[in-house]
């Protein structure tokens, strides 16, 4: 059955992708489910050199969500390539730099090592300098993506931050710069704060970072809808996807594929289950291809 999805130069066997930062580097989630059934997995963000990440508390649970401030802890591209071999999986390598030069160096290394697809992390709000700028400024983003494009011949996805005034303008810049696809949204800038009054003193627990999970789904749907209307390249939607209904909603507003992130922490078999449920839904209801299903969803009139 036709679950295949063409992302403008990258064909996946189905549209369910595990999101960066929630699934490790490779097939680590095989202890929970059959990772080989997924359309693809995106690696944890990988930088040119190993990064130790942030100190102190890194995660904070909110009502319906999660704030993280990992600070891009990762092993660096060299160790990634030597240690985490790409075993029969469709892997998209997420790369993060703190300067244009670092992104270019990373792109060059990925190209040389036959990495078929990369996702540019232009949006991680955790790092105090660097990443944030590229994703929030059209010109900076255009400059970066177009230079990566010159160096890297594989499939290039730009992952966008929602922490901007007009995400569609940023998306247009990424398209013009030669990105094959756009993924959105990254986490929403947030502060988690918990106050406890103990023995006459306030004690606080806090994490400044990016909010993800169910809480951000409406923000994500809105962003994906606006981006889809603004560009012609495929949009990979993400933000609070837990169920098949969520997946269909993202298709309805224009997403060609979806990424699942925080749900992997709650139900670690979410991605595999979504593949199965989507397949069953299509079979039961007579959709021969994913496009047929998407077209039907998109034919639903939404107010302009």
């Amino acid at each position: 059955m036709g679950m295949n999805v063409d992302l403008n130069g990258l064909t996946l066997k189905n549209p369910v992708i595990a999101a960066s930062g929630t699934y490790g580097y490779n097939n680590e989630f095989d202890v929970f489910c059959d990772v080989s059934k997924l359309g693809a997995t995106v690696t944890k963000a990988i930088s040119l050199h190993p990064r130790p990440g942030n100190d102190w508390q890194r995660i904070f649970e909110t009502d319906c969500g999660l704030i993280n401030s990992i600070g891009l802890e990762n092993v660096g591209i060299e160790k990634y390539l030597s240690t985490y071999q790409l075993i029969n999986l469709s892997t998209i390598v997420n790369i993060a730099g703190s300067t244009v030069e670092e992104y270019l160096e990373l792109a060059k290394i990925c190209d040389k090592n036959g990495i078929k697809a990369i996702e540019l992390n232009l949006s991680c709000p955790n790092v105090k300098c660097g990443c944030l700028e590229f994703g929030t400024d059209e010109e900076a983003l255009y400059g970066l993506v177009s230079r990566v494009r010159e160096i890297y011949s594989g499939h290039l996805t730009s992952k966008l931050t929602p922490n901007v005034t007009s995400i569609e303008k940023i998306a247009i810049a990424a398209e013009k710069a030669g990105a094959n696809a756009i993924s959105a949204i990254n986490t929403v800038k947030a502060l988690g704060l918990k106050l406890n009054y103990i023995n006459g003193e306030f004690k606080k627990e806090y994490v400044r970072g990016g909010l993800s999970g169910k809480a951000v789904k409406p923000v994500a749907l809105g962003a994906v809808e606006r981006i889809s209307k603004a560009v012609n390249i495929p949009v990979i939607g993400m933000g609070g996807i837990y169920t098949l209904e969520d997946v269909l909603e993202f298709f309805a507003v224009g997403a060609e594929a979806v990424q699942v992130g925080t749900a992997n922490f709650t139900h670690p078999d979410t991605c595999e289950r979504l593949v199965d449920e989507l397949e069953a839904f299509m079979q039961t209801n007579g959709f021969a291809t994913l496009d047929e299903l998407k077209n039907k969803l998109r034919a639903l009139p939404l107010a302009p």
Binding site: E28, F29, K44, E73, F265
Partner: peptide, 9 residues
């Protein structure tokens, strides 16, 4: 979060 060492939380 993840329980298996991948999210570095």
């Amino acid at each position: 979060a993840c329980g298996i060492g991948v999210c570095k939380g």
